[in-house]
């Protein structure tokens, strides 16, 4: 009963979010174009830097010689991870500005249902865009990707998901405290982008930044996914184990941080409280 009630609420939030998203029609177009620009840029940067499509130095560092495939996989993880981070944070901020957060939070629906419902549409869109991009990249840019290894990579993405959800929850909790959350969100997104390993291997970063990147759930997900795509699960056991631990740790951390933040917000009367 409780599960079906919560599922109904999840669908309700997702439907509301979809309708609101559709009312801003240009967002749909810009989201769709974003993937093409990213892949196009990745291809041009790769060719511009090395003079050719395949790079020996990238292959030495990561096992991938095709920078486009490397970047497409990285972008997939980054887009997925940022959906939780930005999605959770903006679902609080947008509803605060609109004045509707109070009504949603006064309902019996669980907070995680509210957050996941708000990003469900974006996740579905990400999946849809991927279904459009990948075949197009295969045709346009001669992207070579095999289905079975790619599906194994998606399993790694699922393993990293609790950690990315946790970080999104922690960020949403912090946002409750900020008078103007816009700059915080921008900095956070830039930081995640720089440390995600989406565009370049994190091994080229200075050591402190490498540690920081490994301490967040994005780069371990990206690197393990890439490893699994080229050498299967058996070739990435240590990466999978590390990702499982860090993902679980962030899930707990995020849950506790958000719970604490909301309790504090209720106590001191922040924003909509």
């Amino acid at each position: 009963m409780a599960v079906t009630e919560e599922l109904g609420a999840l669908i309700g939030v997702a439907r509301k979010s979809w309708k609101v998203f559709l009312s801003y029609k240009l967002w749909f177009v810009s989201d769709l174009l974003m993937g093409f620009f990213f892949a196009g840029n990745a291809l041009l940067i790769g060719i511009g830097l090395t003079g050719k499509r395949h790079s020996e130095s990238l292959a030495q560092l990561t096992g991938y010689s095709d920078y486009l495939l490397f970047a497409v996989l990285g972008f997939m993880v980054l887009g997925f991870g940022l959906t939780f981070l930005s999605g959770f944070v903006w679902s609080v901020v947008d509803e605060l500005y609109a004045g509707t957060l109070e009504y949603s939070f006064a309902s019996p629906m669980r907070r995680i249902t509210f957050f996941l419902g708000n990003v469900l549409v974006r996740l579905a869109l990400n999946g849809l865009f991927l279904l459009i991009y990948v075949p197009l990249f295969v045709v346009l840019f001669d992207l070579r990707i095999e289905v079975v290894p790619f599906l194994k990579g998606l399993a790694v993405l699922l393993l990293g998901t609790p950690g990315m959800v946790g970080l999104g929850l922690a960020a949403a909790g912090i946002v409750l405290y900020l008078r103007d959350p816009g700059p915080f969100i921008s900095i956070l997104e830039m930081l995640v982008f720089a440390l995600s390993g989406a565009m370049y291997p994190i091994s080229i970063l200075p050591k402190p930044l490498q540690w920081l990147a490994k301490a967040l759930p994005y780069a371990p997900t990206t690197e393990t996914l890439r490893k699994v795509v080229i050498s299967g699960f058996s070739g990435a056991v240590s990466g999978i184990a590390y990702l499982a631990v860090i993902s679980l740790a962030y899930a707990f951390f995020g849950y506790l941080t958000y719970k604490w933040s909301e309790k504090q917000a209720r106590k001191i009367g922040l924003k909509s409280y």
């Binding site: 009630e5 609420a9 669908i11 309700g12 939030v13 949603s104 019996p108 629906m109």
Partner: peptide, 12 residues
Amino acid sequence: YENLRYFSNIYY
């Protein structure tokens, strides 16, 4: 209608 449908969902 959509507003009420949303609130009916989150109130189970």
